[in-house]
């Protein structure tokens, strides 16, 4: 593979980038050329090169979301060539490398598209809908007393592992972006099943799922058609099994909670 060779030839690329000045103005795709892109660069570094070129030319640089650039924060959120986080499986945009592309390629870069995620500017979207879903119940209220002893609450290894798998969700929104229905079910299911599996999550178990689903619907996300694009595009591999757990949690909470509203 060309990319594994540090002396690999630099690439020239054509970029089709969504440009939108602000929330209330309709944007459009704009074509740019970038030259001498090293295959060793990350995708975001390639965009840094583009922005430097744009700044030198006196043009507004392309706004895009990023923070850690290590694949852990979930800030980066680009829809590249028709896929969330681009063509490579199991990676965030910041961990996608230019060696995945070839010299002369045209790359289409768009923001996440969902009514619940309005575009702030260019490729940067507002994902505070996720924050509001978490605020509705995606937490455990702990009484901060003395420090409990380690291992005081016994959790079987396989349960701990499954809860951890769910907890690896970085909230990037790739699931919503890839879903035909712009559904947030994979995200919500990861948060709900993580806490439902653990003893600490049990006291608020029913109200949590009821409130989170209510908020999810209020934000205008679609429903789940079990298509599986979300799990296929998820950079950390959250599985559809979580959505089944979420549905179970929701049905049993609705059937047995004391909440009549």
């Amino acid at each position: 593979m060309a990319g594994s060779n540090p002396n690999a030839k630099p690439m020239n690329l054509t970029l089709n980038v969504w440009r939108q000045p602000n929330r209330s103005t309709e944007g459009k795709m704009v074509e740019y050329k970038v030259k001498d892109i090293s295959p060793e660069m990350s995708f975001l570094e390639m965009l840094d090169v583009l922005n430097e070129d744009l700044l030198h030319a006196g043009t507004d640089p392309v706004a895009f979301d990023h923070d850690c650039r290590e694949g852990i924060c979930g800030s980066c959120d680009l829809f590249i060539n028709g896929r969330s986080h681009g063509p490579e499986k199991g990676t965030t945009t910041c961990q996608l490398h230019m060696r995945k592309f070839s010299d002369g390629d045209t790359i289409t870069i768009e923001p996440w598209r969902a009514n619940a995620f309005p575009v702030n500017k260019d490729l940067s979207v507002d994902r505070s809908a996720f924050d509001r879903i978490i605020q509705a119940g995606g937490y455990v209220s702990v009484n901060t007393g003395g420090v409990p002893d380690g291992n005081e609450i016994a959790i079987p290894k396989d349960i701990a592992d499954r809860a951890f798998e769910a907890a690896t969700c970085i909230g990037c929104g790739a699931c919503v972006a890839a879903c035909k229905n712009a559904s947030a079910m994979l995200f919500v299911s990861a948060k709900v099943s993580q806490l439902a599996l653990l003893p600490q999550g049990k006291p608020e178990r029913k109200t949590r799922v009821e409130n989170m689903i209510e908020q999810m619907d209020k934000e205008g996300f679609g429903a789940c058609s079990n298509i599986g694009s979300c799990a296929a595009e998820c950079p950390v591999g959250i599985s559809l099994e979580n959505i089944a757990i979420l549905n179970r949690e929701y049905i049993s909470a609705k059937a047995t909670s004391n909440n009549l509203a």
Partner: peptide, 14 residues
């Protein structure tokens, strides 16, 4: 589900 994405993608490789 249709209403959840008012603005579609230019490229969509589902």
């Amino acid at each position: 589900n249709k209403a959840a994405r008012g603005h579609g993608y230019a490229q969509w490789k589902a």
